[in-house]
Design a protein around this nucleic acid. Structure first.
Lengths: 202, 202
DNA sequence: TAACTTATGTCACCCCATGACAGATGACAA
DNA sequence: TTGTCATCTGTCATGGGGTGACATAAGTTA
């Protein structure tokens, strides 16, 4: 990759350190009572600097899901054109989970930590839903492209909504293990298969 | 109804006044830049008193959707037992919209105002989604009762998720008129009908 | 009217978030 | 190596969200 300078590397390190410190404190003593000052103190930076990396307390907790959604979008765009919209969405999700399983262990650990935290914190659950709503718009654009309709088309939105609904069933209140999570995904997709008519998403 | 005393009546009036003042200010000058002090000033109460009626700035904006969801839950529980889960959910939603159309005009106006505000404010959109997630749990319990399963059953959660997905398609980015909204609801339900196999929700 | 209960206002405080400014540090060319 | 520049960081000050404590005002009941 492009060799980045010392400054850039330090920034990356600080960012990761802030995420780790925040997730750790949030999980051990609770999101609400944890202050930015505490997080900053662990990383040994000023509280002001925290806000130069993350625009809010919520953002640091949601940074991983946010990245995940970007990856999902990218995977979706890369799916072959002959897959139906729902197939493409499902496969993109599968690829994302597999990539996470085969990648850096520390990254996977952070991902699961963030998931657990969000699942047990209403405020963050709300924020994550908002993220999904945003990406839903972009998913709709991709699905619309495949179906040859407008993104505002009700049927297209239905396809997207069913998919995000499946995603939420998997990831909320799901197991804290990537393999079990992949298993749960397959189970959920199988249910959708049984409930929906063939070719419903064309 | 039970004749409530002067104190209780004043409380109701203050609550409604706070909601109206808040919605008005939020819509005219924006949610973020509106301060609690401004809202309190319009109603002529101290800012501290505002927080005795609503636990947060967000809550006052979401109080109407919150009430709406309670009503939906109640309507669902009242649906006859021979309706399938999805039929019962759909009919409960229809009844709720009809009730709103036939009820107090001021209340309907407030409802539409709140919807418009929430739709154009990401923070509130997030909060509303969180509300839905909460009520989804209770919807799942009712659907589980009808299907004779556990609320954690994946198929049961799928039924609930499809329904809430349909609800969101209707209410987000939908028209600002109750009749048109009811129309959009029927269109969306029709699409689901075409996509799902007969008896999928049993 | 008197005693009780409850709502409200005032005050003080903490935390989140942001703008402004100065100092520290890495990047880069001579 | 040195000097210059860009950028990151810390400090300070400010405003708004949200809460606890306490005194006072108002409604309730006898």
């Amino acid at each position: 990759m492009t060799t980045m300078g010392l400054r850039e590397r330090k920034k990356q390190k600080t960012r990761i350190a802030l995420i780790d410190a925040a997730l750790d404190l949030f999980l051990t003593q609770g999101y609400d009572i944890t202050t930015i000052d505490q997080v900053a103190a662990v990383v040994d930076v000023s509280p002001r600097t925290f806000f130069r990396y993350f625009s809010s307390k919520e953002e640091v907790a949601l940074s991983l899901p946010q990245d995940g959604q970007e990856i999902l979008l990218a995977e979706l765009a890369a799916r072959p054109a002959d897959e139906s919209p729902h197939q493409a969405l499902s496969n993109a999700m599968r690829v994302m989970l597999d990539t996470l399983r085969e990648g850096d262990a520390a990254e996977a650990r952070r991902f699961l930590q963030a998931r657990q935290l969000i699942g047990s914190t209403p405020t963050l659950l709300a924020g994550q839903m908002c993220l999904m709503a945003t990406s839903e718009r972009r998913l709709a654009e991709e699905v619309a492209r495949r179906r040859g309709t407008d993104p505002d088309d009700l049927h297209t939105q239905f396809v997207v909504s069913v998919f995000t609904a499946l995603g939420r069933i998997c990831f909320e209140h799901g197991p804290d293990d990537l393999s079990l999570l992949a298993e749960r995904l397959e189970q959920t997709l199988a249910i959708a298969e049984r409930c929906l008519r063939p070719g419903w998403d064309r």
